[in-house]
Design a protein around this nucleic acid. Structure first.
Lengths: 197, 197
DNA sequence: TCCTTTTTCATGCACTCGCATGATAACGAG
DNA sequence: CTCGTTATCATGCGAGTGCATGAAAAAGGA
C-alpha cells in the first residue's frame, strides 16, 4: 500500500481551480491545461482524477453546490441569537454575489446554467440544488409563520419561492454591474418588510 | 454599382443562425463553420459580414435585444382593450420562456449573461437592455398608480424593479425544467394581486 | 534494501478552431 | 457584350483542444 492520497480532496482542489478559471476567463476558456496550471499540477494529473473533461465539470458543479451550502451554514452559525428574519435575510445574502467568493460562485453558477440548457446532466444537478434550497427556505418561512412572525394573509409556501426567485433575479444585474449589492439588499429588505410583522 | 445586398439584413440573418446554434448546441459550440451551415452559406460569407467572431456575437446580442422588444410590442399591440394590469402581465409573459422563440431568446440571453462576466462589452449591452426595459416598466406602473389602480402604499419606483427581477429569476428555473411556465405565471399573478386593487 | 503499487508527468495524435488568402461567381453601369 | 465592383466561396495555416500512451517518480511493505 504505497502513497496514500485522498482522491476526493484532490478532486475538490481541481474543482476549485475550475472555479478560478471560470471566474477569471469564463466557462468556454476552461481547458484541461488551464485547470492544471491553475491547480499547479500537470495536465496528466487532471486526467488521472477525471477520465474526461465532462466528468470534471460535472464534479465541479456538484462541489460548487456544496460550497454554497457550507458557506451558508457557516454564515448562519456566526449569527448571534438571530431572529427568524435575520436567518432568512442572511441566507438570502449568501446567494447574492456580495463578496469575492460569492461572486465566483455566482459566475460559476450562471455558467453552468447556460450550459444546462443543452446538457441535461447539468440541468439535473441544478434542479436538485434548487429543490434543496427551496425546501429549507420554505421550512424557515413556515416556522416563522408558526411563531406568528408573519403578517396576516402571508402564505409561506408561496412566498418562499417568490423570495428565492427574486433573489436569483438579482444575481445577474449585480454581476454585470447594473445593481450594487447594497441596492439589492435594500430591495430584499423591502420584500421582507412586507412578509414580517 | 453591382449586386446590391442589404448588409444589415444579411447580418440579422446570420445573427438568427447564431441564435439557433446557441439554442440547440450551446454557446461554446458556436463556431464560424456551424453558423455558416445553419445559415446556409459558406464560412467565407460569415467572415465577409463579420470581420471577427467577437463582432458577430456582439451584433447577435444587440439583435436579440431588439427581437425581444419587437416581440413585446407585437404582443402588446395584439391585446384587445387591455387594462394597465393586462399590459404589465403580458409584458412579463414575453420575457418568460413560455413558447419556442421565447425559449430560444432566454437561452441566448443567459449565454451572453455568462459570457458578460468576463467580457465587458457584453455587460454593457445587457445593462442598456435592462435599463430600457426597467424604464418602460416603471413608467407603466407609475401610470397605473396615477390612475389609482394600485393598492395603497405601493411605490411604483420600487415595485417595478422587484417585479422585473422576480421575472428574471423565474427564467432559469423554467429553462431547466424545474418550473412550468403556468406555475411561473401563477406566481406572477399572485404578485400582481398584491400590487393592483 | 528492493519491489510493487500509486501517483505524476511529458509527449504525441487527430481534430477543430478563428482567421487569412486568392480564386470564382454574380450583377449593374458603360 | 465588357468591364469593374461586390459578394461568395474553397482552401490553407498556425494554434489550441481533449484524450491516449508510456515513462518517471514517490512511497509504504517485504
Amino acid at each position: 500500500m504505497p502513497k496514500q492520497v485522498d482522491h476526493e480532496q484532490r478532486r475538490r482542489l481541481l474543482a476549485e481551480a475550475v472555479f478560478a478559471v471560470i471566474g477569471t476567463r469564463g466557462f468556454e476558456a476552461v481547458s484541461l491545461r488551464d485547470v492544471a496550471v491553475q491547480a499547479g499540477v500537470s495536465m496528466g494529473t487532471v486526467q488521472y482524477y477525471f477520465p474526461t473533461k465532462h466528468q470534471m465539470l460535472l464534479f465541479a458543479l456538484g462541489h460548487m453546490r456544496q460550497r454554497v451550502l457550507t458557506r451558508m451554514q457557516a454564515t448562519l452559525a456566526a449569527l448571534d441569537s438571530p431572529t427568524r428574519r435575520d436567518v432568512i435575510r442572511a441566507a438570502t445574502a449568501v446567494m447574492l454575489p456580495v463578496d469575492e467568493p460569492g461572486r465566483e460562485e455566482a459566475c460559476v453558477n450562471i455558467a453552468f446554467f447556460s450550459a444546462a440548457t443543452v446538457t441535461p446532466e447539468y440541468a439535473q444537478q441544478l434542479r436538485d440544488g434548487y429543490e434543496r434550497i427551496l425546501t429549507v427556505s420554505t421550512a424557515n418561512l413556515r416556522e416563522a409563520a408558526r411563531l406568528g412572525e408573519l403578517r396576516d394573509g402571508i402564505d409561506p409556501d408561496r412566498e418562499a419561492p417568490a423570495l428565492y426567485f427574486l433573489t436569483q433575479g438579482l444575481v445577474g444585474p449585480i454581476l454585470i454591474g447594473l445593481y450594487q449589492p447594497a441596492e439589492a439588499m435594500s430591495l430584499i429588505d423591502d420584500h421582507l418588510d412586507r412578509l414580517f410583522r
